[in-house]
Design a protein around this nucleic acid. Structure first.
Lengths: 252, 252
DNA sequence: CTCTTTCTTGCATGAACAGGCAAAACATGC
DNA sequence: GCATGTTTTGCCTGTTCATGCAAGAAAGAG
């Protein structure tokens, strides 16, 4: 097998899964892990992926978290959520997508042949959409917050104010029937509020753990949620509460 | 068997499989591997395939390989240029960095322990800087142009206008002593002009091929260049011209 | 903290490589 | 027919490249 061939296969799997494991690749290619590590090092030097302990992930910044302990287990779950969320899209729609690993998974799940206009303040989402030929991508700039992976601040708000969208994919939040949608950072909450205000509908895709989390900063009430994409194992009682406030429930 | 016959068969297999192996071809054609290598060398020189260790692959593995293909070109050279360019930085400076694969390499070469403020309209640069803990990153949003990997347009210009920088790393341009710095896209040129206007100094890192290229859209004159980072093999005469207009020359 | 896994670096080995050389095949001119 | 020059090809030689192994460093896990 040619070195170049391995590199191509690594790029392919990275595009498909968002991550690769050194040991798994070594087994599949029939070479030593050292060779795979060398491959990964070279590709990383060329900027085509981001090296992490145990393998590599797409060069997008937040993708690193997909290999971290917490998200490692949830990665299949988030991929399933993403597929279900993408099913809500129609060609020609315009979207706001903000930050969070689930939203990044959604961005990666958007098919290449779908025409969309997407505005995002999340670097990871932007990177995932950058090479989709039919997506008109608008980057919402501003001060970048490493912990969130998104841009916030006055510039971001101003850019959001100029736009409108059919759907807003609201990510990385806490959800609670009483308090509604909440965020962990005040500046982040401001941006989410602006996006929510300028969107016809809100879509939230969450893993079970988010369904009971309340964060400090309020974004919007539970009745603003148009679509809620959840795991099959989500607690039925909670879902019924959201449903009674107007949200459609979609199971991944 | 005629030489031309072999060439055609190689082209055929390449079109079918995307790759060929020197040893395998030699066995199939009943000739020595040296002969096959000569064939491959000639075809590579004619641009009909890309030579790799052990055989060859199609010269353009990706259909829409605008950015990814460019970034694989001259990787080591760009890494060297990047190291030399980063040596110009001091802690605490503020920078504009625009698009281009060389600028991406520069962004990746910035050490983790350097405190900087960086404003960029290039997604790749932003991704590279996103996880540097001491870099205050400002993303300059706008309409994303896939071919350039950068954001342009009125929003981008407005964001640039609010900022000032010590240095501007100007990338992916044409350079010519008479015409100065030129860009390949009018909107891109606008953004570069705005960044140049709001910067104390301009840094340009280029591979040799850019040193003689003139693009259609004018950005700024050659005398605005403060630092020029070039390969060791750059043509001395051209460098002297830039030097006489005030540019410091740095060899990678 | 200790232990385990993963990573980097240096090194040895064999495969693949480019360039030079000579023999064979072929064409051309006398 | 014979001599000459060109092209193609295979072989040889030193060099470069890819790979696996080993040892030490580094990163996570417990």
């Amino acid at each position: 097998m040619l070195t170049e061939e391995r590199h191509q296969l690594i790029r392919d799997q990275l595009a498909a899964d968002g991550k690769v494991l050194a040991g798994e690749l070594a087994g599949r290619f029939g070479v030593s892990e050292d060779t795979v590590r060398r491959d990964l090092r070279e590709l990383a030097k060329a900027g085509q992926l981001r090296r992490v302990y145990g393998g590599a992930v797409t060069s997008a910044p937040f993708a690193a978290a997909t290999l971290s302990q917490r998200s490692r287990h949830a990665v299949e779950e988030k991929t399933r959520l993403a597929s279900a969320a993408v099913a809500l899209l129609s060609a020609g729609q315009s979207l706001f997508i903000d930050g969070g690993t689930t939203n990044e998974a959604i961005a990666r799940a958007i098919p290449r042949d779908m025409e969309l206009t997407v505005a995002t303040n999340a670097l990871g989402v932007a990177s995932a959409l950058a090479d989709l030929p039919l997506v008109e991508l608008i980057v919402l700039g501003g001060r970048y917050v490493p912990d969130l992976g998104t841009c916030v601040g006055a510039d971001t708000l101003a850019a959001v104010a100029q736009l409108g969208a059919d759907l807003f994919f609201l990510g990385s939040c806490g959800l609670d029937v009483a308090r509604g949608v909440t965020a962990f950072d005040p500046a982040e909450a401001e941006v989410k509020r602006a996006m929510a205000k300028n969107s016809a509908g809100i879509v939230i895709a969450v893993t079970n753990d988010k369904l009971i989390t309340a964060a400090p900063y309020r974004v919007t009430g539970a009745d603003a949620i148009r679509h809620l994409v959840v795991e099959k194992t989500a607690p039925v009682a909670t879902l019924a509460d959201f449903q009674s406030r107007g949200a459609q429930i979609h199971f991944a």
